[in-house]
Design a binder for these strands. Structure first.
Lengths: 184, 184
DNA sequence: TACATTGCTTGTATCCAGCAAGCATAGCGG
DNA sequence: CCGCTATGCTTGCTGGATACAAGCAATGTA
């Protein structure tokens, strides 16, 4: 490590990035940060270990925010296998956070709804998370805050596009949900 | 919470963020993006499923970049339990990617080194990852690229600080590694 | 009615992770 | 030198999240 460029090393300590002039350098630098980030998030999740497992929070969130949905749609949205979603949903139902109700148009499956308890639980999760983040962001300039969110949003969109493009094991069970379309 | 703000919903589809004026709004927006991001990364990891499991890549990276280390230091660095690291290291050794050599100063443990094969493997991982990222970033302006990396780096630093501040289950086995000090 | 499709569940396996217990070495006070 | 404690690592066990495959139930279609 000598000049202003990044190069190989992931997850190393400080990762001093300056401008990353070339595309390759930018990719390497972003890779480094992504690796660090995911490891940090994993540690964080574990530290704040909610009463419930970590995974179903995602599904709960999607139900609270996206409205009633079928398990299949949840799975496609979240890039999870339907079987995984099925188990998580069962757990959520057992804990009273989600309710099934028959789909009037298709008796094979059910529509899933977040119960009042589920919504409350989700709000708890969200509040706690946002409080932590606010504690971090409070020392940031509004400009940096806005930029980070904007850029991560764009990165997410690009990643999702690639994910959908190459179906892969989890993210697609035949329907190949295009772009942001949500079906139904 | 009413105006042009983000609000509750995680992981929902498009997550249109504009400026996120207040701190709370910024935190919520960042939370949204972080959740989406982690899920996308998980899906990605699975899609490109390397020959080896996903976890040891992190350790390999740290060995290649950080030089020879003891398992204990690896664990502290990566916020992992020592037992987890121990197993992963064993796997790496069995596959010839990492070598143990006796620590001249302490015969209880060993120093771990990435072998030539390990370094090559790591380079493969990194190349593949960076190629994917480059494919995404190529349509970005140099300014946005640099900003994203800078801001993520800062976010990581802040997250790591908090992680160290509150030890939590994983990142600490009795020694309470303080701040950024690395021991050794 | 027969067959293909779709929605979901369940059996099984894998990977990752932590906790607790144990072993070997180290280091220290007598 | 002898214990006692601390440290480094390993191993047994457990739990969670996930995927894949197989199967059942309801739909739709010819």
């Amino acid at each position: 490590m000598s000049n202003g460029a990044v190069h190989a090393c992931d997850g190393a300590g400080v990762s001093e990035i300056t401008v990353a002039s070339s595309l390759d350098e930018a990719a390497a630098g972003l890779g480094t940060e992504m690796v660090r980030f995911t490891r940090l998030i994993a540690a964080w999740k574990q530290r704040v270990k909610h009463d419930a497992g970590a995974a179903d929070r995602v599904l709960l969130a999607r139900l609270v925010c996206g409205g009633d949905q079928r398990a299949t749609d949840l799975a496609a949205d979240a890039f999870l296998d339907l079987s995984t979603v099925s188990r998580q949903v069962r757990s959520l139902v057992e804990r009273g956070l989600v309710a099934r109700r028959p789909d009037p148009e298709d008796r094979r499956g059910s529509l899933l709804t977040a119960t009042e308890a589920g919504r409350a639980r989700f709000e708890d999760y969200r509040r706690q998370r946002d409080a932590e983040l606010a504690g971090i962001l409070e020392s940031w300039s509004p400009q940096d805050r806005a930029d980070l969110i904007r850029l991560m949003s764009r990165l997410n969109a690009d990643l999702a596009e690639r994910q959908h493009a190459r179906p892969g094991p989890g993210g697609d069970q035949g329907t190949t949900v295009e772009q942001g379309e949500i079906r139904r």
